[in-house]
Computed example of a mutant assay.
Amino acid sequence: MTGLRYVYAVCRPFGTPLQSQLTGVGGAPPGLLHHHGLIAVVSQVPEADFGEEALKAHLEDLDWLSATARAHQGVIDALTTVTTPLPLRLGTVFRDCSGVRTMIEAREEDFRRTLDRLEGRVEWGVKLYLEPEPEPEPEPESAPAGPAAEPRPGSGRDYLRRRRTSTHAQEERWQRAEAFARTLHERLSRNSEDSRLHAPQNSALSTVPGRNVLNAAYLVPRAHSEEFVELVDRTKDEAPGIRVELTGPWAAYSFVGEAAP
């Protein structure tokens, strides 16, 4: 194998083969590098794209970054169906196989401890969105005002009163959404082995409608995933105006902790 070594994940040996048509970053099929009873899942990538300076430049290219992330995730998803992978960060590259083995030896204790904790477990993501309020229907057009028409007395006060009422209503909706998010997170945490609260998504940068109230991940034994999914599904009609979004099962990215390089 020539070129640099791109490492997707570390895991323990597994018996079920990966999909024969699986390709990774740059279109190369992933291979398995065995060392000290662990496996690094790797593929060959060109130095022209993944050398230090080239990689820095590529990370500023959103199209390249998106394609690379999809290929990386595709390998992790395939691994998740046959074993418990410990995902490494996007763009983890070594000069050769010897560098990968050195990395495994340096982090072997962390890898084994984290794999013990994650064995047989998957990550489920739950997001809550406060749906946008429906746009008010436009008022019917009135007849054009004559030359003697004057503003109605008190119309400015009426406008300010409507603004205050609207602001108050929005604050109440947000408070109800936050209360529901806290309750749901507590409920889901009791039905999972671990949980992580991530920062809400920035509405201005998101293509998803609504304001993100909860962005959380839950570590669930694979054998209990069906019950967890049913629990989330039962909450979807509890709070009108709030959308519950469930994603997964994923490799336990949020629970890798210090084991990731």
Rank of each mutant, 00 (worst) to 15 (best):
D116A: 05
E137R: 13
T114Y: 08
E135L: 11
F94G: 06
M103E: 13
L128K: 05
R95E: 11
L128A: 03
D110V: 00
G99T: 00
P87H: 12
L130W: 02
E131F: 03
E123L: 08
L128P: 01
R95L: 10
D116N: 15
E108K: 07
V126G: 08
T84D: 06
L86E: 12
G120M: 10
P87A: 10
F94L: 14
E141A: 11
E137K: 13
P85S: 10
V122T: 08
C97M: 12
W124T: 02
S98Q: 13
V100Y: 03
F111E: 05
E139H: 07
P134S: 09
T92W: 00
R107N: 15
T114K: 09
L118F: 00
E139F: 04
P85G: 08
Y129S: 04
E141L: 12
L115E: 13
F111T: 04
V122N: 03
F111R: 02
E119A: 13
T114W: 04
V126K: 04
P132Q: 03
P140E: 12
E123F: 04
I104P: 00
E139V: 02
E105T: 05
R89G: 15
R112E: 03
T102I: 07
E135V: 05
T84W: 05
E137N: 10
R121P: 00
E109Y: 03
G120Q: 13
E137F: 09
E139W: 07
V100N: 03
E105Q: 08
V100R: 02
E141H: 09
R95T: 06
I104D: 01
E105N: 06
K127F: 06
P136D: 14
R112D: 03
E123D: 14
P140A: 08
L90M: 13
L130A: 04
L130H: 03
D96F: 04
L90S: 10
T102F: 07
E133D: 12
K127C: 05
V122A: 08
F111A: 01
A106R: 15
T114Q: 14
P138G: 10
D116I: 02
R107T: 06
T92Y: 01
E108S: 11
P132E: 01
D96I: 01
M103F: 14
L86I: 11
R117G: 15
T84N: 08
T84A: 04
P85R: 06
E135G: 05
P136M: 12
R117D: 15
R112M: 00
S98V: 07
A106T: 12
R101W: 06
V93A: 00
E131K: 14
T92V: 02
D110A: 07
L90N: 14
E133K: 10
T92K: 06
T102G: 08
R121M: 14
T114E: 09
G99Q: 03
G120P: 11
R101Y: 05
K127D: 04
G91A: 14
T92R: 05
E108V: 02
L115G: 02
E119I: 00
T84F: 08
D116P: 06
F94Y: 15
P85M: 09
M103Q: 12
V126H: 07
V126D: 11
